[in-house]
Every structure is written in structure tokens, then in C-alpha cells.
Design a protein around this nucleic acid. Structure first.
Length: 317
DNA sequence: AATCCGGGGAT
DNA sequence: ATCCCAGGATT
């Protein structure tokens, strides 16, 4: 028998909903390669509210990919200061040089060759900029469809995301505008199908959502075991000169927060004890600060956030 | 396949 | 305190 075509499949419901409620993000106004690419990189593991001021400032500071390609890495990091995951900024500059020389990619496969662009970002850019019919899977999409189809996978793992993407190929096939379909899935996860207290009453997919049907929305996505984080204790010193410059060290390749400046760390070491007539002096010595420490104007070099907070508390920023 | 990489906001 | 976020690179 022939199945009657539903008046509004998954793609149609998503796109119709998206057209009504989408947030007016600046790069959505008139999608351009540079703006969209920058926004995607900034939005990796970072919320819209956090990104927005950085995005605006960055575009003003580096208006075109050519301007970015000509920039110094320290200046790019300064513009990225506080946003986190600084490899994104270093890759952005590396990629800008490639794009300025070779032009913009026009497929997901070509985008995937760009530094800092992985499976998610490649699919997002190719679908939005060139209409490629390729689904994205990010944390939002994983959560939405873990509930919609009651999937037990751990979607932090790449293979699970790839399997979901494969499944979504069948859905994006029916999309009117692939880029809108992709953004709709993500917008739904961000605004309605949220990690806690999803607003199922407002969801365009509620009539077909398996978890909603069973009342088990809260059980998805399946959460993996939590891992204990290592603790790093660091003693730092603040040394200033008469000009208000601060003694800082720049993190080198291979370390944490590469390229950013931090306060010199001190290794607590041997305690020297001396007994005077009226008090006992306990002197904790330490190694001298690193030989490569320099006095720098803390407003002019990219600082790690912890360092910035300490300096602000000391009235040095 | 695991691990590393930041920081902020929500609960 | 813990989880989550428009993930990707490295090992």
C-alpha cells in the first residue's frame, strides 16, 4: 500500500518553526564567507552571548580576510583574549593566509581542509554558504535527536556523531533550504530542547518525539561517567616597575595558553629558619622568576583570564 | 579512542 | 559544585 505523504515532515516543521523564531544573529543578515566562517569558529563550544561582543570587535579590527591574513599573531590573540580555546585564533590566522592566497572553499570537503574546521564546521559553512545538502551534528542536534529517536549513544564521541549525521542525510534531503534546516536543528536545541527543562509544549517536533511520548525527555541524551579533573596549584608573583608595567612571561609552544602572557610562577622551595631574640624568622625561598620574564604593558599583550583578573584586582588594568 | 584545550552562564 | 556550550587537533 502506498503511504499518504504527511503534511509537514520533519524538515518542513523545522524550517517553518525556524523562520518564525530565529534569533537575528549578525552573520545571518546577509551570509558572507568571512563573517560566517569567523562566527562558526568563535561559536565552537562557546555561547552566542559570549561570542557577540568578540565578533563585533573582531570584524572591526580585522574587516576582511586579507586584513586578517596580514596581521601579527599577537594582535589576533589580543582580539581573542578571554574567549578561550586559543588554538582557534592561531588556526584562524593560519587559515586566513591560505584563503587570502587560494580563495574561499565551496564544499564541505574543501572546508574540512582548512585549519580549525572539522566535520561540524565544514558542514555548517558549506550548507549555509553554498546550499550543500549536508547535515550538521553539534551538541544541540545530538540532544534533540537523542530525544526524538531515543538514541543511547554517547554523542561526545565522533563515531556516534557521524552515525547521526548519516541518519540526518535522509531528513535534510527534504529540506527547502539546507542551511536553514541545519540552523533550525541547532536553534531548536538552544532555545527549546534545552539540556534541562525542555519546553516541549513549544516544540515543533513534539507530536513525533519518542522521548516526549514516553515522558523520558530527561533521560536523554545519555550522560557518560564524570571524570575527575586534575588540580594545578600555581604560586604567582606580581612585580611592577615605576611605569606601571608588569613582569610577565609569555607561554611558549607546547604549554598551556600558548602565546598568552601570564604572571611568573614561583616554585616554593627550601625554607630558611633563623631565630632572633624576639621572633623567629621563617623565610621561604624560591627560584628566581624565569629568565625570559619581561616588563610589559598588560593592556597591550594578550593575557590569560586568570592573570587578567589578578591584575584587575591589583588595580593594574 | 582518549586526551587536551578556556571561559562563562545556567541550574 | 556540576553541566553545558554552533568542536577540533593531537597523541
Amino acid at each position: 500500500m502506498r503511504r499518504v505523504r504527511k503534511t509537514g515532515g520533519l524538515a518542513a516543521r523545522l524550517e517553518a518553526w525556524f523562520a518564525e523564531v530565529k534569533r537575528p544573529m549578525p552573520w545571518r543578515l546577509e551570509p558572507a564567507p568571512y563573517a560566517c566562517w569567523l562566527s562558526e569558529i568563535m561559536m565552537q563550544q562557546t555561547t552566542y552571548a559570549s561570542v557577540l561582543p568578540y565578533y563585533t570587535r573582531f570584524l572591526k579590527r580585522f574587516p576582511t580576510v586579507a586584513a586578517l591574513a596580514a596581521a601579527d599573531e599577537a594582535d589576533v590573540l589580543k582580539a581573542w583574549e578571554g574567549l578561550g580555546y586559543y588554538a582557534r585564533a592561531r588556526n584562524l590566522l593560519k587559515a586566513a593566509k591560505m584563503i587570502a592566497a587560494g580563495g574561499w572553499p565551496h564544499s564541505a570537503a574543501a572546508w574540512a581542509a582548512v585549519p580549525g574546521v572539522g566535520p561540524y564546521t565544514a558542514a555548517a559553512l558549506a550548507s549555509v554558504l553554498d546550499g550543500e545538502r549536508i547535515p550538521v551534528v553539534d551538541g544541540n542536534v545530538a540532544r534533540v535527536f537523542a530525544r526524538y529517536w531515543k538514541l543511547d549513544d554517547d554523542f561526545r564521541k565522533l563515531p556516534a556523531r557521524a552515525r547521526l549525521a548519516e541518519r540526518l542525510r535522509g531528513e535534510i534531503a527534504a529540506a527547502a533550504v539546507p542551511g536553514d534546516f541545519n540552523q533550525a536543528m541547532m536553534e531548536l536545541g538552544a532555545l527549546v530542547c534545552t539540556p534541562t527543562n525542555p519546553d516541549c509544549a513549544a516544540c515543533p517536533l513534539r507530536v513525533a518525539c519518542a522521548a516526549r511520548r514516553d515522558g523520558t525527555q530527561g533521560d536523554y541524551p545519555v550522560k557518560a561517567a564524570k571524570k575527575e579533573l586534575p588540580v594545578r596549584r600555581v604560586a604567582a608573583v606580581v612585580v611592577t616597575d615605576a611605569k606601571g608595567r608588569v613582569l610577565l612571561v609569555q607561554n611558549r609552544a607546547g604549554g598551556l595558553l600558548k602565546g598568552l602572557w601570564e604572571l611568573p610562577a614561583v616554585e616554593p622551595s627550601v625554607a630558611h629558619v633563623q631565630v632572633f631574640s624576639h621572633f623567629r624568622l621563617e623565610l621561604t625561598t624560591s627560584r628566581a622568576v624565569r629568565a625570559d620574564a619581561e616588563f610589559r604593558d598588560p593592556r597591550k599583550v594578550p593575557l590569560a583570564t586568570a592573570t587578567r583578573k589578578v591584575l584587575a584586582a591589583c588595580g593594574l588594568l
